[in-house]
Design a protein around this nucleic acid. Structure first.
Lengths: 146, 146
DNA sequence: TCCCAAAATAAGAATGAATCTCATTTACAC
DNA sequence: GTGTAAATGAGATTCATTCTTATTTTGGGA
């Protein structure tokens, strides 16, 4: 809960032309503090614990604004609700292996695959902005214990 | 509207241990007749035109049953509703380029990318079942006309 | 061909994530 | 400190999807 961290986040928000509201700062702080992929409701509940005043609408609107500025990243694991993580730098981009049994998410990065994606875009005269690569299946734990 | 096609689809359904109801036959026939990626509501409206009696619930339940048997494939383009297509054979699998401006969907297949996916799974001791690879961006038409 | 139990369907109610509305509050440039 | 544009809270609303229940259909057997 360092004042310094608050100042840094305020700075970050302003650099992205977003007003530094307490709710947005708290949201970024929460996502910075975890590696988990929270959904909006989880974020809402976590923020409620810390700041007394937050509404779901603000959580959704903040996440939208932050995602637009690429300060957070939306993750769609295909289960009907969006998850969010603090955006990683270009060099920290990763895709996901998703276990259909236990829900575990394994992050991975494969340079060759990224290269192939660019090549496909070129072939189709397509300018990429983002991509999602999700492999669904069974993780080793679930395969073993079953 | 050949009786032969109906018979074939009945056969297909029974081979997959699904009762051959008129609604399911009509649904498969519809998806067989098009290359488009319909969502559930579009399928419902199309079926309403042809068969007088269909309900949304049946469309959703049929799609679920058919997807379970891999007779249809769910497509999640990240816009909040699922789309569906008739399942292609293993050899006809493809991924998608999705234009964020006009919504156009370009299908592609890249063998090297598929190989890399398997390699990533091996590295992580993960048994894959399905995957989705979606690249979002701008198609050539939209880039030009803008 | 007729019968019957199990399964599927129709219609609309219910759910749940996400968005919108509008009155109130807050951020921040001056 | 002030004013104004932007952000927020609370709850209503939307929209895709799922559930409920009474009714109908399917398909195996008499």
């Amino acid at each position: 809960m360092s004042a310094t961290e608050n100042q840094q986040l305020k700075q970050v928000l302003r650099e992205h032309e977003l007003k530094a509201t307490t709710q947005r700062i708290a949201l970024l702080k929460l996502l910075d503090a975890t590696h988990e992929h929270f959904d909006a409701e989880e974020i809402y509940l976590e923020l409620l614990k810390k700041e007394k005043n937050v509404s779901r609408a603000t959580v959704y609107r903040s996440l939208e604004a932050l995602a637009e500025q690429d300060l957070v990243t939306r993750l769609d694991f295909g289960d009907g609700r969006m998850r969010f993580e603090r955006s990683k730098g270009e060099d920290e981009h990763h895709d996901h292996l998703i276990c259909e049994k236990c829900g575990k998410v394994i992050e991975f990065f494969n340079l060759e695959m990224e290269a192939q994606q660019l090549s496909v875009c070129e072939e189709n005269d397509f300018t990429p902005s983002t991509h999602t690569m999700h492999i669904f299946g069974t993780c080793s734990d679930c395969r073993t214990s079953q």
